[in-house]
Design a protein around this nucleic acid. Structure first.
Lengths: 117, 117
DNA sequence: TTAGTATATGAACAGATATTCATATAAGGG
DNA sequence: CCCTTATATGAATATCTGTTCATATACTAA
């Protein structure tokens, strides 16, 4: 065994061990896309409001200080990722959370931020 | 009370109730930035490898199929967000996770993805 | 010192993305 | 019917972001 750096010299066995139990690349990509949804200030704000109450688009826009159009675009993203669900009542569409794990995600993030202050 | 849509007509009291317990805008922004770090395929891949072993830049590049430079750039992002830590040994820099909650984050994401298949 | 290796960094480019604006759809009231 | 309101959608734009390439730094060995 030389004193040389063992970088780029991981054995096939070690590579196998490291890759053992890792999700498939497609799964990791799905996960990245899932986290990406939460990685935006506007969307996260909307989700926080929805964690408190079922709200229509106009109310969300008013609370978040956004245009209804921008809210609608973001809600579409949240819908496509099955993070919110909606209910129509006349011309009004009420949105609410469609995921039980969101509060858990928020808490994990807050814990991380507090520990690193 | 009219039959009119109550959008944009939330009372000050309701607004207060909804905003009650919400983190400050700056905190929500911090959270969004935290999630953003996980919202990228390359970074998530690197974090998965690091969850299995302490690894140097070259090994990470080899495992992830990325250039060392790209890995280094991403590791900087992870360092700045205090998600990984490093240890120097000669010219080699070994990286490892610096957050106990990452596995929890991964599990939450996986759970969400599995429930919506 | 000189050469070689591991990592980091800055600039530049390409691709992604959030917002805005204009417009479309859809439902209700008059 | 027409008019208004609530929401959705498409295109355009400006900003952000990840990678690459070239180069710099830092450490080791000879």
């Amino acid at each position: 065994m030389s004193t040389q750096c063992n970088c780029k010299m991981i054995s096939a066995k070690e590579i196998d061990e490291i890759k053992q139990g890792l999700p498939a690349a497609a799964t990791i990509e799905d996960m990245a896309n899932f986290f990406k949804v939460f990685g935006d200030f506007s969307r996260l704000k909307l989700l926080y409001y929805l964690s408190k109450a079922e709200l229509c688009v106009a109310d969300l826009a008013s609370l978040a200080g956004m245009q209804a159009s921008a809210v609608s675009h973001q809600l579409k993203t949240l819908r496509l990722n099955r993070i919110v669900k909606y209910r129509k009542e006349g011309t009004v569409v009420y949105y609410s959370l469609d995921d039980q794990h969101i509060e858990g995600l928020f808490e994990l993030a807050l814990t991380h931020l507090q520990e690193n202050r």
